[in-house]
Design a binder for these strands. Structure first.
Lengths: 294, 294
DNA sequence: ATTAATTATAATATTTACTTATTGTTCTTA
DNA sequence: TAAGAACAATAAGTAAATATTATAATTAAT
């Protein structure tokens, strides 16, 4: 593939000729020459350079944008052609929400590794929005998330049902009461931060049962929330995935309440696009076979 | 840009190494070497070749499809970069219906030529469907047609109102009568072939006024139809654009009939896409300024 | 001013690309 | 079935491009 574009892209990303040369295993003058050749060919300067800063200019921005797309297409072409002869292989860029990334993805990756060691997965964690927009900009190949994302380029398919339970520490007097909305509203709730899929479920739950809790504590991770619940700090609503071990060890108990468990779907999100290499097929199948889905 | 892909594309199109070499102004062995190098790089054969046939195989099809897109993107990039510094320039591929292509486009091209001689237009003629699908496959940059085309990738904007009149030769006794649907149905009608925009208007006209003509003659071009009408062979319904000269020379007369002239819009169709170079802007503006539009 | 960090230039070496000449196929046709 | 035509592949040499090393030039920071 056209080396000029590759070199330009690297320089534009690193904003540094010498470092780009290193990464590309070539000498710095070679990089200078490539850039000069490309600028000559296009008849326009692409990089404003002093010895302190290298910056793409307006023309450089255009070339960078197109270059990204051109190189991506070339790579996709290589992958599809290689797929014709070889086992599924190559990079597979997965995006996942926190919950899925922490509790579900590890086993998926293990299965993938076992049967298809030539596939090299990488994982980005983010909320549904993040994953969706990374999909649109082709920064990941597939997403596993807790919500849907509306964009004409993206399709979402449910692959697993998740159940969320209200949990408390084992010491709470609450455990002996009959659980009513009023009882729940009287408790301290520990919930995830704004933007989290689990937070959203909790808010919908409150709304549905007309609960406005006395005290809300927001914590940034599921792990911390579980520790808070264990310590008797308050109660929470969490996915069964995240509390399995604590239940087994009897550190945390589920509360019986009509309307729980709350069910929600996990979704596979992917680009509505013609590019569908073996590696992606294999991973998607593995995910969708994981449990009673659809 | 990557010469390997360019050479491959040319060979795949021409199905012939030697002819590709000629067109690319290089020797035949050079072409052989490029193809071999590309096949080596991708690790797969792309062309099945005997000395009678050269054919792309499955892998070759993938490379051809991606190659087309990659080279197109590279060209678009070059055009946009050049637009930053230079006057509108480069190839501009226009698609037009027969009527527009014959009667309207020449003056557009003349205007374009006058002010922007660096733009090199090429014209493909076809019906709305043809033009629409050529737009989708990026074989043209803009279309001027008589109908709309529904595809998420394509947008249509009206740019001019067209009027169609019923015409007859000057000798017809018809000219002295009061024109009613019954009178029209009694005449011989000369109409365009199936698939033509004008044909469609005529059919709608018949339907609307419950006319089923005694005799229909289908002819393949507007020019031939006009000659038929002049010769008294029958009457027709044609765009004012096409009959201007014949009216002036009093070879053909318009019939007065309630519901004529029939109005329809001409549309600019373009790809709903980020690529919008100066040459395309200039041409579109010229077209849309051409008459009272929108 | 000196130094450090950086890109550009020059000269040279190496690799790749391209050419001509030739060979080896396969299909056609006489 | 032999000869010829049409074609791609190969070989060998040449031209062109792409690298490298060494060095210069520029700028910012100390």
């Amino acid at each position: 593939m056209d080396q000029h574009l590759i070199v330009f892209m690297k320089v534009a990303q690193l904003k540094n000729f010498s470092r780009a040369a290193e990464e590309l295993h070539m000498s710095q003058p070679a990089v200078s020459q490539y850039i000069q050749a490309l600028e000559r060919e296009l008849g326009v300067k692409l990089l404003e350079r002093t010895n302190k800063y290298v910056e793409v200019n307006k023309a450089g921005k255009i070339v960078y944008q197109y270059g990204k797309s051109i190189l991506r297409e070339y790579e996709q072409m290589q992958t599809l052609v290689s797929d014709l002869q070889n086992e599924p292989a190559g990079e597979l860029r997965i995006g996942a929400s926190y919950t899925i990334g922490e509790y579900l993805l590890p086993s998926f990756l293990a299965l993938l590794q076992k049967d298809y060691s030539a596939i090299i997965p990488s994982v980005s964690i983010g909320n549904t929005e993040d994953i969706g927009s990374k999909l649109v900009s082709h920064d990941i190949d597939i997403g596993l998330v807790e919500g849907t994302f509306t964009h004409k380029q993206v399709i979402s398919v449910p692959f697993q049902i998740d159940r969320l339970y209200i949990i408390s520490s084992i010491g709470k007097s609450l455990l002996k009461k009959r659980i009513t909305p009023e009882v729940l509203a009287a408790e301290t709730w520990i919930i995830r931060e704004e933007g989290s899929g689990t937070r959203k479920v909790v808010e919908e739950f409150f709304e549905k049962h007309h609960i406005s809790p006395n005290r809300l504590i927001t914590l940034g991770s599921t792990q911390t929330i579980k520790e808070g619940v264990e310590a008797g700090l308050g109660i929470s609503l969490l996915s069964e995935l995240t509390i399995q071990k604590e239940i087994e060890l009897d550190r945390i108990r589920r509360l019986e309440f009509a309307g729980t468990p709350i069910q929600r779907a996990f979704y596979v999100m992917k680009n509505h696009h013609e590019f569908y290499p073996k590696a992606l097929q294999v991973f998607e199948n593995l995910v969708r076979r994981s449990q009673n889905s659809d």
